[in-house]
Design a protein around this nucleic acid. Structure first.
Lengths: 220, 220
DNA sequence: CGGCCTATTGATATCGCTCAACATACGTGG
DNA sequence: CCACGTATGTTGAGCGATATCAATAGGCCG
C-alpha cells in the first residue's frame, strides 16, 4: 500500500509566489468555458500558463479516439512548459469560467533570463510538476482499481481546498478520473461505492468526498 | 492505441550538451556497482546528478515492501532535481560500473544563477523529464499488459543505442519492467512471448530486442 | 559442480472491461 | 410550472485478462 507524499504546494518556498508575481506584467488573463481548449495538441508552444481559478486537464486523444488524461491543474499550477516547439498534449478547462494567465513564452523567458530569483522559482515549479507526475505514476502502478482510486483521492484532496470537516469538492467527473487512472468509468464508480462501504471515504453527493483516517488494507 | 512521442534527446537543442559542460568543473565522478544506491529515499537533496554511462532506476519501496520504479535514467539524463529538501525516491545503478557525475547542489545552483544559458539548459532538462514522465503515464494508462509492454518498448528503444539492424540491448530485467509498468514479472514475460508470436518484436536472447514495423492492433 | 538470479510456462481464482439498463441532476424550452 | 433531453452517476451480468502460486529452464559465477 502506498504512502502518498505531500503536495507540491507544501514543499515550495512560500516566497516563490511573490517572485512569480514578477511575471504578471506580461500576463494576459483569459476566462474559459467548461471543455473549452486553452491550447490544442500539435499547437505551437508560444505561451506558458498558470491557473488563476477553476481547473484544467492535460489530455491526449489517441488514434482510436480514446482520451487519456495525464494531469489535472489547479489554482497556482503552471503548465505549458515544454522543451519542444509543439504541444504533445491539449489542455482544456474543466470548470466553467476557469481563469488562466497566459505568458508569451519569448518574453517570459527573457524575464527569467534576467532574474535569478525568478529563474529559481520557475525551476522549482518545473521540479514540482515532476514530483506530481511521479506521484501519479505511483498511483497508476497500484494493482487494484480500489487502491488506485483511493491513492488518487488521497493525493488529489491534499491539493484541494478543504472544508472545516475535512471534506473536498472534486472538480472532476468520474470520467476524468477514469481517463486519468486508465480505468473504465464504471470501475471508478464501483471503487467509490466500495470505498464508502469499507469506511475509507464518505460521500455527500457524488463529488463531495471526505477521506476517513484508514490504516488497514482494502483487501477484504 | 498509442502513438509514442519522440525521445527527449531528439527535441533538446544540440548546443545544450556544450552548455551543460560548464557544470563539469564542480562534478565529482563516481562509479557504482549493480544495485548500489546513489542516493536513498529520505536522504537530503544535496546533489544533482547526471548519468555518464550505464543506467539507473528511480524507485520507492512501499510499506508492504513492494518496489515501485518510476523512471529509468540513461546516459545524458539528469536526475536528483527536487523542490523539497529530502528525496522521496531512491536511485540505484542497474548495470555494473554505472558512471555518475555528482554536482553539489548549492554550487550547481550558484553556477546556474550566474549563467542564463546554463539556466535554460537545466530548465530544458527539467522540462524533458516532465515530458518523459508524461509519456510513461500514457503507457501506464494502456489497458492490456501486451499494449503496455509494447508501448514501453517502443518508447524505451528510442532512448537506447541501436545496432545497424535496429535491435537494442535492454539494460533492464523483466522485473524492472514489471515494477515500472505495475504488472507482475510473469505477465511481462508472457507479453514478450505474445508480442514475438504476433511478429511485433523479435528476440535474440531475453534482452536483445528488435522492434518490427507494425500497424495493426494487438488484439487477436 | 552447485547456488543463485533471471526468464519462462502452467493452472486457477479474482478482477476489471464491456455492454446494458437504470437513476439522478440540471438546463432549456414550452 | 412542467416536459423533455442530455450529461453524469450507479448497478448488474458475463467474459476475458491478470495476479498469484508453482514448477521448470537457462545462464553466470564462484
Amino acid at each position: 500500500m502506498l504512502q502518498i507524499g505531500p503536495p507540491v504546494a507544501a514543499v515550495l518556498p512560500a516566497g516563490d509566489a511573490n517572485v512569480l508575481a514578477e511575471l504578471q506584467p506580461i500576463a494576459r488573463c483569459r476566462r474559459f468555458r467548461r471543455e473549452q481548449d486553452i491550447h490544442l495538441q500539435g499547437e505551437r508552444c508560444d505561451f506558458w500558463y498558470s491557473v488563476g481559478s477553476g481547473a484544467t486537464r492535460k489530455y491526449l486523444l489517441d488514434v482510436n479516439g480514446r482520451r487519456h488524461v495525464v494531469d489535472i491543474h489547479l489554482p497556482g499550477d503552471f503548465f505549458g512548459f515544454s522543451c519542444r516547439d509543439r504541444h504533445r498534449f491539449g489542455e482544456q478547462a474543466i470548470v466553467e469560467g476557469t481563469l488562466i494567465r497566459c505568458y508569451p513564452r519569448t518574453r517570459a523567458e527573457a524575464l527569467v533570463d534576467g532574474d535569478a530569483n525568478l529563474s529559481r522559482a520557475i525551476r522549482a515549479r518545473s521540479f514540482g510538476t515532476t514530483q506530481r507526475l511521479e506521484e501519479q505514476l505511483l498511483i497508476l502502478e497500484e494493482i487494484t482499481a480500489r487502491r488506485k482510486v483511493h491513492a488518487f483521492l488521497t493525493h488529489f484532496c491534499t491539493r484541494l481546498p478543504r472544508a472545516p470537516d475535512g471534506s473536498c469538492m472534486l472538480p472532476v467527473s468520474r470520467y476524468d478520473i477514469a481517463d486519468l487512472l486508465g480505468l473504465s468509468a464504471e470501475t471508478v464508480c464501483r471503487a467509490f461505492t466500495e470505498l464508502q462501504e469499507l469506511g475509507a471515504i464518505r460521500l455527500r453527493g457524488p463529488r463531495h468526498v471526505r477521506l476517513i483516517q484508514w490504516t488497514s488494507d482494502f483487501d477484504r
